[in-house]
Design a protein around this nucleic acid. Structure first.
Length: 587
RNA sequence: CGGGGUGUAGCGCAGCCUGGUUAGCGCACCUGGUUUGGGACCAGGGGGUCGAAGGUUCAAAUCCUUUCACCCCGACCA
């Protein structure tokens, strides 16, 4: 391909709204063009990269035994109603009607459609397991698209779904997919971590995310300095923390704490570490069909509430802030809430302090963090204005509802090896998930087992953000001049730059090298534009082809220059050497 | 969805506050010439419903109203 014939509109200036390097360079390099909020056109260079990424994904999945299909981008609303997601998915689902007033949605993900497909054609355990995938457009009407391809509304995604006769086989495939995904991202030259992820209402260890490490990532992940433990902060665990100091000695008592309710102020007031305080976080939990309730989450004052964990603990779709007025209306005392009277205590041990009668609250659910189980000598709100209890033994609440609610903090100990955990940022490029029968059951997708009994498919689901990968690759491979593509996904593996096209000898040598590289199977571009040398080199650096063979002044000595985009190192070689070296380097 | 901001040539911007001839600049583009190892220079040239609609006025890019789009912070993100 010749540069002079290709539509490659490189820009000297960055678009004013671009912040991330990947966004800036993809636009400046002429890869993509924004047509609407969160919707991008792929120009020739962008399309080439996209196709290469897509090809790698396809190659590895096919090798892993998956079968590619392509489902309709436009999907009937009826299916979504059946699974209950038509309402639940919310505003992100783009709904519309055709001329006959039939309702449709643009597919944001395709569980329903794929389950329907399996239901239609898979009837027997003999047909299992089956792993179907597609690489197709998705549309999610994101509240706030941003960062170029990183968070678009329309995007290319690989979504796969596997069907199994039992849990065990599904887990086997899940692990197989993890291996396959690792290969895919390794081939793209990405530095990534496989992290344990939030598996939502399903729970368990059935969800892993593939995170490309980058400061600009939108997800916070917790990684261990000692072993390979890594988890999304929404799901991260830690070894049981050790108390920071001796527990404060205090007889069980009700203590006057006028106007003091913030954790910090209490810690100062009582001269104790926040570890010994009970923090109460009030939220309104939203459920299906517009139902909601106030939930009080209790945890150590030294911890903060992890909202995803908290939402999962009560099975809520979402947690929102709740106003003081609402709390008061529910019979609560904002600023002085504590678990003691609120959680019914039926097994108070001998010698437990006598607290006042259970507070007159209604419609409130309470959950305690695991870290408070059996905690002793604690200080907590007395559910009375300006009063706290000291010397509280929370063992009295052992029958209460406990869950992991606390957010893992930097410096906490690894749950596996005990080394220190720290935070890093990641871009989610893949997610694999043990679905179970979450969709097959409500959609009545069943098969007949050996005994001729109908059973719902046990499913797994696996996603890769294909267009997002372009952004992730650039985010991790760029310098101040532009992108630096790994050869495996580069729009071209090399460019031959003719320094001055009016110089007949240079032009001819350029053509010769270009042809020789093509003969060797190198995906090469010939920059034959009538531009000055510097201009072309800037474009090479901006676009980020892995190698440039520069035909210029040293041609008179029989030399051309090989420039490595990554190191920017250059070396003088004969024409033949340059061709051989490029061909070898991109393999 | 809450808060803030911006819409003027393909891109980046000035002009608006304080209304007044043909709406300007840089880059890009076209023609000719000189250049040719790090985003060249000279000369000439083309391109704009000033986001849209309505209003005020003798007169609107400029003031008012409505509306649309895009961006930023936050909320949200299978």
């Amino acid at each position: 391909m010749r540069f002079s014939k290709m539509l490659i509109p490189t820009l000297k200036e960055a678009p004013k709204d671009a912040v991330l390097p990947s966004h800036i360079f993809l636009v400046r390099g002429g890869f993509i063009y924004q047509v609407a909020s969160g919707v991008y056109d792929f120009l020739p260079l962008g399309k080439r990269v996209l196709d290469k990424v897509r090809a790698i994904v396809k190659e590895e999945l096919d090798r892993a035994g998956c079968q590619e299909v392509q489902l309709g981008f436009v999907t009937p609303a009826q299916l979504w109603r059946k699974s209950g997601r038509y309402e639940k998915y919310g505003a992100e689902l783009l709904r519309f009607k055709d001329r006959k007033e039939n309702e449709f949605v643009l597919g944001p993900t395709h569980e329903e459609m794929m389950v329907e497909l399996a239901k239609q054609f898979v009837n027997s355990y003999k047909q299992l397991p089956l792993n179907l995938y597609q690489i197709n457009l998705k549309f999610r009407d994101e509240a706030r698209p941003r960062f170029g391809l990183m968070r678009g509304r329309e995007f290319l995604m690989k979504d796969g779904y596997s069907f199994h006769a039992d849990e065990e086989d599904m887990v086997r495939e899940f692990n197989h997919m993890e291996t396959t995904y690792r290969r895919i991202f390794e081939r793209m030259g990405l530095d990534f971590r496989v992290v344990e992820a939030d598996s939502g209402a399903i729970g368990g260890e059935g969800s892993k995310e593939f995170m490309v490490l980058a400061d600009s990532g939108e997800d916070t992940i917790v990684v261990c300095e000692g072993c390979d433990y890594a988890a999304n902060i929404e799901a991260a665990k830690r070894a049981e923390p050790t108390p920071p100091e001796e527990a404060p000695e205090a007889d069980p008592n009700r203590f006057h704490t006028p106007g003091i309710s913030a954790i910090e102020d209490l810690a100062t007031f009582f001269f104790v570490d926040p570890w010994f305080l009970v923090k109460t976080v009030a939220k309104r939990a939203l459920y299906d069909e517009g139902k909601s309730e106030i939930v009080l989450f209790f945890l150590r004052g030294s911890d903060t509430l992890q909202e995803v964990k908290a939402a999962n603990a009560v099975g809520a779709n979402e947690l929102v802030d709740v106003s003081e007025e609402e709390l008061v209306a529910a019979g609560l005392v904002p600023g002085f809430m504590g678990p003691v009277e609120l959680v019914r205590n039926v097994n108070a041990p001998e010698g437990a302090p006598v607290y006042k009668e259970e507070a007159a609250v209604h419609g409130v659910t309470m959950v305690l963090d695991e870290g408070l189980r059996g905690a002793q000598k604690m200080i907590c709100g007395a559910n009375e204005k300006d009063y706290h209890y000291v010397g509280v033994n929370l063992a009295v609440l052992n029958d209460a509802r406990f869950a992991d609610l606390a957010q893992v903090q930097e410096g906490d100990a690894c749950p596996r090896c005990g080394a220190k955990l720290r935070y890093t940022k990641g871009i989610e490029v893949g997610h694999i998930f043990q679905l179970g029968t979450r969709y097959s059951e409500p959609l009545e997708a069943t098969f007949l087992d050996q005994n001729g009994k109908a059973r719902p498919f046990v499913m797994g689901t696996y996603g890769i953000g294909v267009s997002r990968l372009l952004a992730a690759v650039v985010e991790q491979n760029h310098d101040e001049k532009g992108a630096i593509w790994p050869a495996s996904v580069a729009p071209f593996e090399a460019v031959v730059v003719v320094g001055n096209v009016k110089d007949e000898a240079q032009r001819e040598a350029g053509e010769k090298i270009y042809e020789a590289l093509r003969q060797k199977g190198v995906d090469v571009l010939l920059d034959d534009r009538p531009e000055r040398f510097g201009f072309k080199m800037k474009d090479f650096e901006l676009i980020g082809f892995p190698y440039a063979v520069v035909v210029g002044k040293k041609l008179s000595e029989g030399k051309v220059e090989l420039v490595c985009r990554k190191s920017l190192a250059r070396e003088d070689l004969s024409l033949e050497e340059a061709v051989a070296k490029v061909a070898e380097s991109v393999r």
